[in-house]
Design a protein around this nucleic acid. Sequence first.
DNA 1: ATGAAAGCGCTAACAT
DNA 2: ATGTTAGCGCTTTCAT
Lengths: 330, 330
Amino acid sequence: MSTKPSINAVAHQAGVSIATVSRVLTGSKPVSAETRLRVQAAVQALGYRANPFGRGLSTGRSGVLLMLVPDFANPYYAEIVRGAVSVARQRGYTVLPVDLEGSANNEASLQVLQSGLPDGVINLVPVHERAAWAKAAEGRPWVHCSEFQPDEMSIPHVSIDHRQAATDAVQYLLNRGHRRIALVNSDERFLYARQRREGYELALRRADIAVETGRIRTTGTNSYAAGSLAAAALLSLVTPPTAVFAVSDTLAIGVIKGLRRAGRRVPEDTAVVGFDDVPIAEVFEPALTTVGQPMQDLGAAAVVMLLGQMEGQIVGHRILPHRLVVRESA
Amino acid sequence: MSTKPSINAVAHQAGVSIATVSRVLTGSKPVSAETRLRVQAAVQALGYRANPFGRGLSTGRSGVLLMLVPDFANPYYAEIVRGAVSVARQRGYTVLPVDLEGSANNEASLQVLQSGLPDGVINLVPVHERAAWAKAAEGRPWVHCSEFQPDEMSIPHVSIDHRQAATDAVQYLLNRGHRRIALVNSDERFLYARQRREGYELALRRADIAVETGRIRTTGTNSYAAGSLAAAALLSLVTPPTAVFAVSDTLAIGVIKGLRRAGRRVPEDTAVVGFDDVPIAEVFEPALTTVGQPMQDLGAAAVVMLLGQMEGQIVGHRILPHRLVVRESA
DNA sequence: ATGAAAGCGCTAACAT
DNA sequence: ATGTTAGCGCTTTCAT
């Protein structure tokens, strides 16, 4: 009663061998309807659950999917995790999200990865920090999520088209009549940052507008303060921009605060477009016009692809659609 | 080379028995310096990591701590998780945070719990939803975090003193000269909500101010919209309040938006105090005056208590300090 | 369709 | 201090 029942107890109670119990549990081989019922009754009666260690030792699989998350506190990642969890559980898998806390936690997470416990890994770590993980994950099934680059084509990935998304955002500002459009970028070590910059420049060139380096601010970090600083710098230009495209909602909010501190109204004096559509985006005043990513879908697709890969399929790559969410700030 | 090396391979390579390898790995028994070195060299050379299933099957422990999280997307919980993860890893444990997504995910999470995989569980689920979990966790080491109630004294818990915190918030408003202070509460099924209401009433009574039920709004949910609605209701009173204590920053922001929509200035016309000190609190304009909880410490303490319990200690309960963070909104 | 038995990789009790 | 060995609980041949 007190100690957890093993497969032996179930077999005994049902009057069958442990092999038969295993068969009805896993459905690996046919079992006569009658015995199946008996076994199921015994399982029920004893409250039996297969011991994950025994099963794992035998099958070599744990049903655990490791998810490398750069930052739990960032709602962008939180949503991706949520999407992943929800499809994983439908397929009988548990996702183990580990918070890398901006690399502080690498060592411990590496251990988890190398322990062999996870059956596969979903990677949210940006391209430029992947090297260490790539080595540790060697041989294991894994997929990249949210960023990708051409030279990694061998590893399945799912992402939006960051370049196109940026082009769309800037095009929107162009359509609204803006000609002096600034870019507030985060850190160009991030692939997405480089791709969004490309998209920004592409949109301008298509409109026959010269790309002025003075209108491109690279903050190095993704904080409110950095956005405010960038705004101040842009306002000190001889001809300040009439619109700003910031590569994250965080930066966008910082930019707006900076603009307002300098007496500018948003969007009347300066329009601002953000990126990500995090929850604050619609609560902040003015509500942010921003580019939304299908976060949950990204996570879900990553799991589907990972499981496919584990089953030996060739899964390839996926690009998911983004969308421009027009609110008040531009 | 290609397949993962087992303890046998290490033993062979080092010219010792597998028991000796196990001993140097676990440090369970003394091993001569010389052999230890040989074994360690072999481990190194082969890149060996103990198979978690084998070890788990043998020891009955996984090194995994389950953490029941009501909502990943809520930064309040995200911070608690972070605190827990950080001390868990120092102690060689992995925390497995599962997102309950407002109960949507209960079934799957219950499975994880019942699988027997986790060595212990940290519970962030509010008191009134604990029943199902309590049954499933029976016998297993577990601790409650962030809420507690007297009749659960048998289970170790860590929390702030919600009642005292509310009293402090209201006292602050009293000190600023406010007499008509409203309470915007979330859902009194939550223990913290009831306790904060108690604290609110206590502070008023101490100041010889009658508690007027018209000034207490219970929203039922914890959304911006609910806060705005509550604000509108309060403004329709014959004598509207000059200050509002909202039991979460989310509600507080909603209240502020509602007040402004009605033409009130914050804090000049109506002061607002929130609760939690989530990241948005200091970014929103006006920046929120709010009660901060030591989220990371809560998570850390929970892990320490859980591990203590697992080692057979009597761990008791802990109340951590809160603090009033004064900014602009009150 | 079912049972018997051989592992899976490890730890721990028992020898030596 | 070290080796031998019996499990831990399960899945999976191999028989029947």
